[in-house]
C-alpha cells in the first residue's frame, strides 16, 4: 500500500447519480481527496488501475455476467463501500422483481430482446461482503465526506439508524401528516436531514427501513388514512422490496381476502373512558 490509500469507483445497474453527487461536492471533496489517490473512476477520469484499497461500488446486480466483475473488485479491495441505495438495497429497479425478466426484456427491446440479459435485481451484498453501506437515492454528499474521513482515520462509522421523523422534527418542519398527506418517514432510515419533507414532499423511503421497523404499525396508520394494502405495499416496494417485513406483508396480501392476516390490529385510544 502506498502512502495514500488508493480509491476506486465502480458502477453496475444504476443511474450514476450517486457518483454525480460525489463529483458535485466541489471544494470540500478536493480537500479531503488530498489524503487519497483516486486510481479508477470511469465516470470522472480516463486513467484506470486494478490496484486499489477502497472500492466505492454504485449500482445493483441484475445480470449474471456482472457477478465475476463484482467478485474481482471484492478480492482486490480491502474495503468495499456500497455507494447509494441501488448497491445497498437494490434500488428502485427492484420493482422489476415482480415480473418475469423475459417479459420485461420483450417489453423494452421487442425483437432484440435476445441480445440482452436480465435477472433478479439485488444489492451487491447478495453476492459479496460489504464493509459499509451509504444509503440514499441519491446519497447525501455530507455523509459521503464523513464516511471517507472515518475510513481515513480508521474510525468506525455509525450508519444512522433513526427514523426520518427524527431529523424532520429537529428541523421543526410541519409534519407531512398535518398537511393531509402520508409519509414513510416514521419507518425510513434518516441521514438525509429530511431533505424531501423540507421541500414539501413526503418521504419515499429511499434510504430503506430502519433496523427493526414497525411495518405493521405503518400499514395500520396508512390504512386509516385511506390507502389500500396493495397501495401501501407499492409504496414500500419502491426501495424496500427486499426487506423481510415488506416481503411478509406482500405474502400476506397475496392470500385470499378472507385469509389475510393482520400483523397487528389497529388499536384505538380513548376506549377506557
Amino acid at each position: 500500500m502506498s502512502a495514500k490509500p488508493r480509491v476506486a469507483f465502480f458502477d453496475f445497474a444504476c443511474c450514476e447519480g450517486c457518483q454525480l453527487t460525489v463529483l458535485s461536492i466541489g471544494e470540500p471533496l478536493i480537500e479531503v481527496l488530498k489524503h487519497v489517490d483516486i486510481v479508477s473512476w470511469r465516470e470522472a477520469m480516463s486513467e484506470r488501475s486494478d490496484e486499489f484499497d477502497i472500492a466505492f461500488v454504485e449500482g445493483s446486480i441484475n445480470r449474471e455476467s456482472d457477478v465475476p466483475r463484482l467478485k474481482r473488485i471484492r478480492e482486490k479491495a480491502k474495503l468495499v463501500v456500497a455507494l447509494g441505495s441501488c448497491a445497498a438495497l437494490g434500488g428502485p429497479h427492484v420493482s422489476a422483481n415482480r415480473f418475469e425478466p423475459s417479459d420485461l426484456l420483450k417489453l423494452a427491446y421487442g425483437e432484440k430482446a435476445g441480445n440482452y440479459e436480465a435477472g433478479e435485481v439485488r444489492p451487491i451484498s447478495a453476492e459479496i461482503e460489504v464493509d459499509l453501506p451509504i444509503y440514499g437515492c441519491p446519497i447525501d454528499a455530507n455523509e459521503f465526506v464523513s464516511v471517507l474521513k472515518h475510513l481515513l482515520l480508521g474510525r468506525p462509522y455509525r450508519v444512522p439508524n433513526e427514523a426520518v421523523c427524527y431529523e424532520c422534527k429537529l428541523n421543526g418542519y410541519e409534519c407531512v401528516f398535518d398537511k393531509g398527506m402520508v409519509c414513510l418517514g416514521p419507518v425510513t432510515r434518516c441521514g438525509c436531514n429530511a431533505i424531501c419533507t423540507s421541500r414539501g414532499h413526503r418521504c419515499f423511503g429511499c434510504r430503506g427501513l430502519v433496523d427493526d421497523p414497525n411495518v405493521n404499525a405503518a400499514r395500520d396508520v396508512l390504512e386509516e388514512h385511506g390507502y389500500s394494502l396493495d397501495e401501501i405495499i407499492g409504496m414500500f416496494q419502491i426501495y424496500s422490496q427486499r426487506a423481510p417485513r415488506v416481503q411478509q406483508l406482500a405474502e400476506a396480501a397475496a392470500e385470499p381476502q378472507e385469509k389475510r392476516s393482520k400483523g397487528s390490529e389497529p388499536w384505538r385510544f380513548g376506549s377506557t373512558t
Binding site: E162, A217, S264
Partner: peptide, 10 residues
C-alpha cells in the same frame, strides 16, 4: 401501544 409505535422518537 408497542404494536402501534414506530420508535421514531418524535
Amino acid at each position: 401501544t408497542a404494536a402501534r409505535c414506530y420508535s421514531c422518537g418524535t
